[in-house]
Amino acid sequence: MLVLQATILIFVAITATAVVFTRQPVRQVVGLSFYGIILGLLFFILQAPDVALSQITIGAVALPLMFMLSLAKIRRDAEERKRREESEHRREAA
């Protein structure tokens, strides 16, 4: 039991640090999902099944979907802005 608790606590510490040091947002979301898996196990091992169930249900589909939608929108806005700037630039040159 003690081994299990110690191991999972160390895992949480390492994974959280790794998520923070991931710089690219899409990769960070994958890392965050993995962190959610580890965190759900931590809650369950510390005898909190209710909290673990919340973490599992939220972290599985809803959380990555929200992040991915936001990232898709941000990327699209950036592309659109770039295109508009380019066309303005061309008009000025002409």
Binding site: G40, P49, A52, L53, I56, A60, M68, L71, A72, R75
Partner: peptide, 24 residues
């Protein structure tokens, strides 16, 4: 908990697969 994870993990993978292939 195990049942919830078993049902939801497929959907989670699908989220990433769909968005990685198409938008990002």
């Amino acid at each position: 908990l195990a049942l919830a994870m078993a049902l939801l993990t497929f959907g989670g993978g699908l989220v990433f697969a769909r968005f990685l292939e198409r938008w990002l």
